[in-house]
Amino acid sequence: MSRNRFDVKLRNFRGFLRLFFSNTIGLIGFIMLAFFIIAAFLGPIVYPYDITDVAKGDILAQPSREFPLGTDQLGRDLLGALISGAKISLMVGFMGASISVSIGTIVGLSAGYIGGKVDSILMRLTDGMMVLPVLPLVMVLAALLGTSISNIILVIGLTGWTGTARLVRSQTLSFKERQFIERARCMGANNTYIMIKHILPNVFPVIFANTILVTSSAILRETTLSFLGLGDPLSVSWGQTLNGAFNNGAVSIGAWWYYAPPGVCIILLVLSFTFLGYSFDEILNPKLRER
């Protein structure tokens, strides 16, 4: 990337917001995400649901007035399951991503700034992790640690940091040689201080944009894990619902109300992050705007 990538004055938060809200795609993404966040917080209040509740409906009943999205193989309400899934996906996404991005930032900053042996060891490690097939690793980890929701967040967080590390390292390298860093060093600032006070704020916009992508891949990963039967059985996530649908023959009897809605929700949520990421990229990368 070119050196003048961040010459746009991002410290001007209002300017950033103005750019952001004038971007249609970003706005659509923002509205979609807001919808899911509101559903996750208000949904359970407006539409109470408890997985341990006694089932009230018929088995695999079609959508009706009482059950707007039908019922599952035990006669439980599926709309409630859908709403409670929003909270879990968002929670896993945000928490998993914050673990990944923190590890990635620390690794990338240290590798890029300290350089030398530290750099080559950390980057070999990152390359090694990058080559590893993540899904089998995550599956093995989840199986060995036990499938509680906190373990799943931990596992997803611990395996998803490599992209961030590389990105932060390359950005750090480009800032390291700038004059203001040299000036700080001349004034006697130590490495940790320079990394945290001078480099991190400059790299932050990239980290922020990257966090969005990491969040959506964390959400997809949780869904996949749960579908494969490695999710937390007590938390009704969208992947968990799909696992139930698949293992109870919903596909072969065509019970679309069981397996279609969770998938649509996952797609919309991931798309909202994709749109946000796309618009941030456009704002942060002035070259793209000209294109």
Partner: peptide
């Protein structure tokens, strides 16, 4: 890109 592969398979 946003579709989980297994869900695409189910559909």
């Amino acid at each position: 890109y946003a579709i989980p592969a297994f869900w695409l398979g189910i559909m």
